[in-house]
Structure formats: structure tokens, C-alpha cells
Amino acid sequence: MTPGGNHGASAPPLRGLLPLIVGLLAWQFLAPKSVAYLPPPLEWLKALETLRVSGSLWPAIFTTMTSFAEALVLSILIGSALGILLGRSQRLDRMLGPSLEFWRTMPAGALVPVAVLILGYTEQMTLFVVTLTSIWPILLNVRSAARRISPDRLDAARVLHLSWFATQRKILIPSLVGAIQLGTQIAAPIVLIIVLLVEILTQGSGIGREISLAQSTFRSATVFGLVMLTGILGLAVNLLIGWSGALLRNYETNV
């Protein structure tokens, strides 16, 4: 997929969810009620309602989405900045390339114990692990786009006597908007997944902690309900990013 390529790809129609809804309905009405580990969907909603009444649902959602937003913003900023540096400087790219490959293949789960040792069960620890594992799609996209910028475009900036700052703002950044957007679109679901993973692993806070708690006390309807909720949040995030991408595509177009 290229930025600005397929306009229909950004926001898939919601009717695509129909098979999922049909599946859930079938589960509700056709599945045997006796199996305790597989409660029907209406039970999930009741369990979520219980959680809401107890006052722990909204704070959990808020915590998770806050971590998500913070980690995504950090990933975009750090990923883009590093991507530009590495894409524009061959020397830096050679110097840092191998170490970056090392970090890139590091699984988030393996990082959690180390991060906990250093930072404890804190919000910073979550942000550290999540950002480190989700900057890659943005960094790599921006790096390759920064390498491909037409040299004539940058020479044009020089012969038109644009200042360094104006060259960054008017030529470099706009040339990379598409790559940043595409990287963000790939990174966003990863950020959400890793936030939940860290929350489940550390039982610190957020939806992940609620899932982990419910699972350890065998409240299976709550687990299913929270997983469904996560899915809905993920879908909302994707729609939002896709929609913002469609807006950006009016701005950056392929040459």
C-alpha cells in the first residue's frame, strides 16, 4: 500500500461487521447455556454493567486509552525524528543501523521484566515498553521515505534561498507526511496491543488489569466482555486514524 494510493482503503464500511454480529447472535441464541466457560454475549454485557456499577470500568478504560494516546504520540514524535535523521544521514544510518535492528527484534514481553526492574510498576514503564516496541513501523517508513526524497526538491530549496528552518517546514516534513501517516496507521493497533499486554503482565492498571483479575477469579463473562470492549476500542482507533489519513491525503499526494 502506498500513501495516497487507494482512497477506498482508509475507511471500510461498517456493514463489514455484519458477520461478527451474526456470529454473536448465533452464539446468544443457539449455544448451550450450561457451559460455564462460554457465557452467551448478553451475559458479557451484564458483567460489564456490574463492573461499571462497582466504579472500575470507566477508570480502567480511561487509563488504558491515556497510555495508548501518550505512547502513540511518543512513537510518532520519536519515530519520525529518528526516521528523518537516519534517512537523511548515511553516516548515522550506518552507525546506528545494527543496534536498531537489535532493538527492533526485541519482543515486548521480554522487555517488561527489565523495564519493571528499572522503572517499577509505573506509567513511565508502560510508556517505555510500548513506545520502544511500536516506533518501528513509523521509523522505518519515514526513513525510507526520507531516503527517497527527490534531490532536486532539496536543491530547489537551496537555489531559491530557503532558510534551513523553512526547508524543513516547507519541503522535508510535507514530503514525509504520507509516510508518517502510514506508519501511524500500522503502529496504532500495535500500541493498543502492547498497552494491554503490559497491563495484563504487570496487573498494574487499566483494562488489562481488569481482564487479568477477572480471569484469575474465573469470571468468564467479564473476561469476554472486556475482550469485546478492547476489540471495539481497537476498531474505533483504526477508524479514527483511517479518517485522519483520508484528510491528510488531500494534502500530500504522490508525485
Binding site: 527527490s150 534531490p151 532536486d152 526538491r153 536543491d155 530547489a156 516547507k170 519541503i171 510535507p174 494534502y251 500530500e252 499526494t253 504522490n254 508525485v255
Partner: peptide, 10 residues
């Protein structure tokens, strides 16, 4: 020579 590369498409 490369007008496409030197004009800003946005």
C-alpha cells in the same frame, strides 16, 4: 530538468 521532482505536489 526534472520538473516533477522539483515542484512541490502539495
Amino acid at each position: 530538468q526534472n520538473y516533477a521532482g522539483s515542484l512541490l505536489p502539495w
